[in-house]
Design a binder for these strands. Structure first.
Length: 575
DNA sequence: CTGGGGAGGGGGCCC
DNA sequence: AGGGCCCCCTCCCCA
């Protein structure tokens, strides 16, 4: 007894689930595009994928072997067993690219299909790209070395199947379909959920230009030639509660599409389709979950803040602005322009504050002017980044993780990390001096304030493990060790997407969540979502009216401690 | 226009 | 590894 259509139905279901991001548990990064998929499916399709998905939820593919447009077809093939054939996709060149990708990914059936097609089409032309580059196996090894690590998959950043594969929903339905399961949520916070198009879609072509292939999430933040296209892949600010139509897939789509088509190298028409997923998801959610009444004020606030995301994200991803670093392989891929893949921005920027180092410099919107610009080169770890010097490039080859003290390169952060620990740690400490102690001053100030606010974080309990550099002490050696890394020259944990380096893995993965727009913590009252539990806790005070932080000087009460602190500054500042 | 407050976001760091 | 807290940045609203 056998159901004749069982396999077909199953595949159809799976593909539909992929379309919705349902149960997708892996993200594949190809250049600037993100694709969501199911590990099981990938693993069943290719031994290569099988090895990749085993330990990683986020996979970077070699952009020399596959580009977003081609990978979309590959993924479609995996989920449907069919090769789509639009006129563009039927071109010989496309089959060549597909063949390259299929070989690389060890999708033998697809490779055979492509070969057949090429043969039939009188091919025989050499494959485009780099046919003589190392074969898939060696590539695989390289990639495995570079692959980065587990990052929870974002539900909306996926690259959905083409309409012909999965059901093609009506526009409204489409939005809903693209909503993922609610435990994972990509998109902007509620305040921009109704933010309209953030004013940045003005130059978008409309309507997902027929036939344009859907594209992965564009993570590139390269500045488009024209201003006003701050909308980018991660920008979840399109769509609007006020005008649901504007949240249509096509509108926002074209945002990224437009953007990426101008910015992606090689003119690869990998428009992004998924950018809107972020926003539309939020919009949809709000649409469905219409909070019964967020106060009118709240609503208007959200509307008014619609522009916040673009700026935030612009800064968040700005690192690509500088060198047009490709976003692959755990670190920036071999830069096409031969520049440093991981330039220490602090150096680029003349020593900007470490905390802001990623973001604020060089942004044309002038954000960098604000805030701590005045700290006078005061990055507290001004050299604390793995630094890939321009001149070192040839020597390092694929070893993008470089130990500053000795100049050795390593292919992975783990190996660098291991290496760093072989150094006499004294060598690794930064002798902080000059402006680098600005933070210390900040901390002093903070402690002054915290004396008013609450107990200092360092109590009097036994803390036998003392840092030799700054004299801070800890209860256990692991914590001390963790702390000591903050004095090291290297930051062993790079963000896969923007390349920013972190001293702690947890910070890096949390940072990744912001790239992927994962907001697992939802407010039951208003539906607003947050990346961190703590934020939600804070936020809930908005609804409860609880104001636990009281100013000892004037009796003013605050929902958030930070606001009390800033309030106290008002008391203490001379002005 | 300005200053203060509220609140969302990100990174650092300790537990 | 993840949670929690602290700090900073930024934006918006409002008086």
């Amino acid at each position: 007894m056998e159901l004749p259509n069982h396999a077909k139905q199953l595949l159809l279901q799976l593909n539909q689930q992929r379309a919705k991001g349902f149960l997708c548990d892996v993200i594949i990064v190809v250049e600037n595009a993100l694709f969501r998929a199911h590990k099981n499916i990938l693993a069943a399709s290719s031994i290569y994928f099988k090895s990749l998905v085993l330990h990683d939820n986020l996979i970077n593919l070699d952009t020399e072997m596959v580009n977003p447009s081609v990978f979309r077809q590959v993924l479609d093939f995996i989920y449907t067993g069919k090769l789509l054939s639009s006129s563009e996709q039927s071109s010989e060149q496309n089959f060549s690219a597909l063949l390259t990708a299929a070989s690389y990914l060890q999708l033998h059936d697809l490779a055979a299909l492509c070969r057949k097609k090429l043969k039939r089409g009188g091919g025989g032309k050499p494959l485009p790209g780099k046919p003589s580059t190392p074969g898939p196996l060696s590539r695989l090894r390289l990639n495995n070395q570079r692959l980065a690590t587990s990052t929870p998959a974002g539900p909306k950043n996926h690259y959905p199947p083409t309409p012909s594969d999965a059901e093609q929903p009506q526009p409204d339905e489409g939005l809903r379909d693209k909503l993922s399961d609610d435990e994972m949520f990509v998109g902007s916070s509620g305040r921009n959920g109704n933010g309209g198009n953030g004013g940045s879609n003005g130059n978008l072509s409309s309507g997902g230009s027929a036939g344009e292939p859907d594209l992965g999430l564009d993570l590139s933040k390269k500045s488009p030639p024209s201003a006003g296209t701050a909308t980018d892949a991660l920008s979840p600010h399109s769509n609007s509660q006020e005008s649901p139509q504007s949240a249509s897939v096509s509108t926002t789509n074209s945002a990224s599409l437009d953007d990426s088509s101008t910015t992606l190298p090689g003119g690869d028409t990998c428009g992004s389709e998924t950018a809107e997923l972020n926003s539309s998801s939020k919009a949809s959610e709000e649409h469905h979950n219409q909070p019964d009444g967020p106060p009118a004020q709240k609503k208007s606030r959200q509307g008014a803040r619609k522009n916040e995301w673009p700026k935030k994200e612009a800064s968040g991803l700005k690192s690509e602005d500088h060198d047009n670093k490709p976003l692959v392989n755990g670190v920036a891929a071999a830069p096409k322009d031969g520049k440093a893949a991981f330039q220490c921005k602090d150096e680029e920027d003349g020593g900007e504050n470490g905390q802001d180092h990623t973001d604020e410099s060089g942004q044309s919107d002038g954000e960098s002017a604000g805030g701590r610009g005045g700290t006078g080169g005061g990055g507290h770890h001004s050299a604390n980044y793995v630094y890939r010097q321009e001149g070192f490039e040839p020597a390092f080859g694929d070893n993008l993780y470089v130990c500053i003290p000795c100049g050795k390169g390593f292919p992975s952060s783990e190996q660098l990390n291991a290496h760093v620990e072989t150094h006499n740690e004294d060598e690794l400490y930064i002798k902080e001096e000059g402006g680098t102690f600005v933070k210390e001053e900040d901390e002093e100030e903070a402690e002054d304030l915290s004396a008013t606010v609450g107990p200092s974080s360092f109590g009097s309990e036994a803390r036998p493990f003392k840092c030799t550099v700054c004299s801070k002490s800890y209860k256990d050696p692991a914590t001390l060790r963790q702390h000591e890394k903050s004095h090291w020259l290297t930051r062993p944990f790079p963000c896969n997407i923007c390349g920013k380096m972190f001293t702690q893995r947890g910070t890096m993965t949390r940072h990744m969540r912001s790239h992927l727009g994962l907001k697992p913590f939802a407010c039951e009252e208003c539906g607003m979502r947050f990346t961190r539990q703590y934020r939600l806790t804070e936020h809930m005070r908005v609804h409860s009216g609880e104001k636990p932080y009281e100013c000892q000087l004037c009796g003013g009460k605050f929902t958030q401690q930070r606001n009390l602190i800033s309030h106290l500054r008002m008391h203490t500042s001379p002005s």
